[in-house]
Design a protein around this nucleic acid. Sequence first.
DNA 1: CACCAGGCAAGTA
DNA 2: TACTTGCATGGT
Length: 222
Amino acid sequence: MGMDCRKELLAIYELLNTHFGDLHWWPADDPFEVMVGAILTQNTAWSNVEKAIAALKQRELLSPEAMARIGEEKLAEIIRPSGYYRVKAKRLKEFIRFLTEGYCGDIDALCAESLPTLREKLLRIRGVGPETADSILLYACGKPVFISDAYTQRILERHNLIPEGATGDRIRALFLDHLPHDAALFNQFHALLVYTGKNYCRKKPKCMACPLRILFQQRVPV
DNA sequence: CACCAGGCAAGTA
DNA sequence: TACTTGCATGGT
């Protein structure tokens, strides 16, 4: 990334935002659904998560109280379409225990915590890593955090904006250090990067044909 | 058929 | 610290 990081990042944002418009993410009816979705979508296509969410809704299990009551094995079968269903049932249970024991299942009480405190607490839960924690913080609680994910890394690497193999922490710090801490900005920025990232394949050769290559190189110095 | 998807934890060296 | 592996369904 060049010397004026802020300008380059904002240039990318403006470019994508103008091109794709407001994507209004996260797709969910309420904050608890965001939290569940954040766990279910780990390394999984969102279309599969939708099936699991629908199954939970149909059984009226999409609340902290209901999900606390149901058995882990039973829960696993219901979320089966989302993949890794035994692991994810355990992770959901861990999260519910955290929410119940720490906040009596009260989402507002959870979100009332300060950003740094809540982030640390979320990261201590088995099954909640940086991306899941940040997704919950931003999209469920409205906290101003930037979410770094596989797409963010791939896009920035592919356009030589960051060195190869940069960690998620470094990438997140890049955005946090150079952009205003604005939840609305981070919300839309991450949405745009995920939306854009779907056009990128893992391996470079194929990706070089991606339609957004031109778009980036017109405006973004490398 | 192969490859991939909005990760994470546990094990190994 | 820095890799490797298991976890699993569903779409292209």
